[in-house]
C-alpha cells in the first residue's frame, strides 16, 4: 500500500485509445439495434454496455492500477444490484405458478375500483371529499 507512492500515469494515447474503443462500441450497439434479432437484441446491448463499462472502470477510473479493494467494492455494487433484480423476479415472473390466483376485489365498493385507469388520484379524491 505505502510502497506505491507514485501514481501510475497513463500516456495520453491510452486515454484516446479507450475513448476511441468506446465510440466504436457505441456505434456498433446502435447499428445492431436497427437489426431485429428478437430476444438477442437485449443480450447484445447488455453485453456491449457491460464491456464499455469495464473499459471506463478499468482505465478512466484506474481500477486496473488502483488498490484492488476498490475494484472489489465496484464488483460488490454490481453483484448486489443483480441479486436484487433476480430475487425480485423470482416473485414477479412466477406469480400463479402453483395456485391459480383469481383477481377479485376484496371490497367491491372501494373507491379505487371506481376510478378509470387514466383518471388522476387527485381528481377522484377531490370528488369524494
Amino acid at each position: 500500500m505505502s510502497e506505491q507512492h507514485k501514481e501510475h500515469i497513463l500516456p495520453i494515447k491510452a486515454y484516446l485509445g479507450v475513448a476511441g474503443a468506446l465510440f466504436i462500441l457505441t456505434m456498433v450497439t446502435v447499428a445492431v439495434s436497427y437489426i431485429n434479432l428478437g430476444g438477442w437484441n437485449a443480450v447484445v446491448a447488455v453485453s456491449i454496455a457491460s464491456f464499455k463499462v469495464s473499459l471506463v472502470a478499468l482505465f478512466f477510473m484506474h481500477l486496473k492500477y488502483d488498490n484492488k479493494i476498490n475494484l472489489f467494492i465496484f464488483l460488490i455494487g454490481i453483484s448486489f444490484v443483480t441479486l436484487f433484480i433476480i430475487f425480485t423476479m423470482f416473485d414477479t415472473l412466477r406469480r400463479a405458478d402453483i395456485y391459480e390466483i383469481k383477481a377479485k376485489p376484496i371490497k367491491e365498493k372501494a373507491h379505487i375500483y371506481e376510478r378509470a385507469p387514466d383518471d388522476s388520484t387527485q381528481q377522484s379524491d377531490a370528488a369524494q371529499h
Binding site: I73, F74, I76, G77, I78, V81, F84, I85, T88
Partner: peptide, 13 residues
Amino acid sequence: LLTEILLFGGLFC
C-alpha cells in the same frame, strides 16, 4: 459510488 450504484439499481430493478 457503491451507494450510487445501489440507488440506480433500484430503478434498474
